[in-house]
Simulated scan of single mutants.
Amino acid sequence: NTRLQVEHPVTEAITGLDLVAWQIRVAQGEALPITQAQVPLIGHAIEVRLYAEDPSNDFLPATGQLALYRESAPGPGRRVDSGVEQGDSVSPFYDPMLGKLIAWGEDREQARLRLLSMLDEFAVGGLRTNLSFLRRIIAHPAFAAAELDTGFIPRYQDELLPVPGALGDEFWQAAAAAFIQSLPAGDGPWADTRGFRAGLPAEVSLHLSCNGQDRLVTLPTQPPLLRGEQLLIEHQGVRRAHLAVRSESTLYLRWDGELHAVSLFDPIAAVEAGQLHQGGLTAPMNGSIVRVLVEVGQAVEAGMQLVVLEAMKMEHSIRAPQAGVIKALFCEEGEMVAEGCALVELETAD
């Protein structure tokens, strides 16, 4: 086989052989240096693929800019193969794989724990990825016990793909503390972030937005301290550090294993977003319209295919969520559309 498999680093990890170098030597007419029987098998290795995709939306590919990209620290038994860096854009024209994380250990459990640690250190912000999904798999007790088959993900779907819930008070307090302390230094009295009020105790309030939720937060007099990119929170004598990285107007805060994008709440943008999605079907990702299967005035049934979008070598169908009549079309075949762009307006049947 002249083609290297995506998982070839696993083979390299447990054999200590450089398969790419072997390919080049064979291409030059050299013979393989050892036979199959002489290939050593040492320890255990596990690989995961990091993709720009949305596990909560049927794993559709995601596009956008890598506003934050931090790889795990190098070390024994650790390997990261990637082709991106912070600031790069993920387009709809190529495969959405960002990289591969490979961990080696003397046994499977050591390799698993090492890989789990690597996933904990990795941070990607600016677009959706499967990073948290991978971490939940590797950390799952059934995976640790090697109780694996093709039904693993459906069997534990509620644990591996949990439905996002409301963000708690502790999260919002932490987000506000990190957000205010990570603001760049400004000039003049209006840039002061200490919450000065004439004749009243100092008070700092922020209206923040995250994951479609928003909260007006008033900081306590002694909020958690941000040291570098670590927000230190002490609870019942235990201190925990949470990654908190600012990228322009957005703060990326790691909380309960998830990296959340926090920004100041924009009430005008929230109203516009609500109006845009009312009765409208939007593009789930950047891509090209390959087929428009309906016309204005046409009656459609729930589940009927309306538009076909192509992105990253795959076709994705936009279907009617319920029965109704096509009120307007905002796309045509061959057109490039951006994620969130309105494609079809559907007037539902009463």
Rank of each mutant, 00 (worst) to 15 (best):
M97W: 06
Q275E: 13
I318W: 03
P40F: 03
A103Y: 03
V80T: 11
G280Y: 13
V262S: 06
L41D: 06
L160D: 04
L116K: 09
W172S: 03
V217T: 06
A198F: 04
Q65K: 12
T15N: 13
L167H: 03
F171N: 01
P220G: 06
E272D: 11
V307C: 07
A323D: 11
A73F: 09
G83P: 07
R49A: 01
V84M: 14
A52F: 04
Y51H: 08
R70C: 14
Q38F: 07
D107Q: 03
E7G: 04
L116T: 08
V84E: 12
E203S: 09
V48P: 03
A269S: 15
S56P: 07
M285R: 05
G83A: 10
N57R: 15
P321W: 03
V307Q: 09
F265V: 13
R70N: 14
E7R: 04
E310W: 10
T250F: 01
G43C: 06
E347C: 08
A52G: 06
L113D: 04
Q213S: 03
T150P: 07
G195A: 10
G297N: 09
T150F: 13
G75V: 10
A67N: 06
G75C: 14
N57E: 10
E170G: 02
S288G: 11
R136I: 13
A302T: 09
D18H: 09
L231M: 00
R240S: 10
L113C: 10
V262N: 01
R3Q: 11
R114L: 14
A175W: 00
L101Q: 11
G274R: 08
Y94N: 12
S182V: 02
D58K: 10
A244G: 04
G87R: 13
Q275S: 13
L32R: 09
D81C: 10
T35C: 07
S82R: 14
V308K: 15
R108C: 07
